[in-house]
């Protein structure tokens, strides 16, 4: 149970989501996340940037308790997630993953209605909310509500994934490389729309990516991870200016692409 001091601390500093000394070890002994301390405020998009195996996805799964931390704790609205009922916690945290994970046997409408239905909203309220969400992500309900996921393109599927995550209006949104599997044009389109959506909705967002371009575009702050450790947290401008070697490596990869542009 959280102490009164922690609770008021969480409310005072205004952070919706905090991790303190978060560590996750596999039973075999490998440490995937090591002593991670992060804070994310309301309306902020924190990007977890790192190469494969840096512990980004593990961190997300620790936040919604798909994994349990070995050490340290996570505070949601100032309250330790260990004291939450995991099911209730997850229904208050939107979750979008790279492979979308849409239920193939359900229509788009039913997929988007998932959490409101689990939360036993009235069917009238659910229907209105589904229409609102589909319009929000740019899928005309009349055309898309009755379709199955197999009748959607990759970009459309991910739009449904975002609509599903937002349906119950959760204060926190976790996004695990949601646009990584899309073609570059569709990706750019969804990134643009997501950026305006994020500013408009005032959600607290943790966004995982290995793409430094995406991190700079979408993040209000960027947390760079390397082999489970936090290298540092930067604003996009600080990130570009930093002399930290790991950051330099990422910025250099960005410049390599720009060098290619100049060649052509």
């Amino acid at each position: 149970m959280p102490s009164v001091v922690e609770l008021s601390d969480g409310l005072q500093n205004g952070y919706v989501l905090q991790t303190r000394g978060l560590t996750y070890r596999l039973p075999a002994g490998a440490t995937l996340v090591s002593d991670l301390t992060l804070s994310v405020g309301k309306g902020e998009t924190l990007v977890l940037l790192g190469r494969s195996g840096s512990g980004k996805t593990t961190t997300l799964k620790l936040i919604n308790r798909l994994l349990e931390p070995s050490e340290g704790e996570i505070l949601v609205s100032g309250r330790s997630t260990a004291s939450w009922d995991p099911i209730q916690l997850r229904r208050g945290i939107g979750y979008v993953i790279q492979d979308t994970g849409l239920f193939p046997h359900w229509t788009v409408e039913k997929n988007v209605a998932l959490v409101p239905k689990l939360e036993r909203w009235s069917s009238k309220r659910i229907r209105a909310r589904v229409i609102e969400m589909l319009e929000l992500v740019g899928l005309p309900p009349a055309e898309f509500a009755r379709r199955r996921p197999s009748e959607l393109s990759g970009g459309q599927k991910q739009r449904v994934g975002v609509a599903r995550a937002l349906a119950a209006d959760p204060p926190i949104l976790l996004m695990d490389e949601p646009f990584a599997a899309l073609d570059p044009v569709t990706r750019a389109e969804l990134q643009r729309e997501f950026r305006s959506l994020a500013t408009r909705l005032e959600k607290t967002i943790v966004f995982v990516t290995h793409d430094v371009r995406e991190a700079l575009l979408l993040g209000t702050r960027i947390a760079l991870l390397d082999r489970g450790r936090l290298i540092g947290t930067y604003s996009p401008q600080e990130f570009l200016d930093s002399t930290e070697p790991h950051v330099r490596a990422f910025v250099a990869s960005l410049q390599a692409v720009e060098g290619l542009d100049q060649m052509q």
Partner: peptide, 22 residues
């Protein structure tokens, strides 16, 4: 599909709901 299972758990389905509905 493991992604479907992960999404179902991550969105807050109980193990029973996961079994019967998915």
């Amino acid at each position: 599909d493991p992604a479907v299972i992960e999404a179902a758990r991550g969105m807050g389905m109980t193990e029973r709901q996961l079994l019967w509905q998915v």
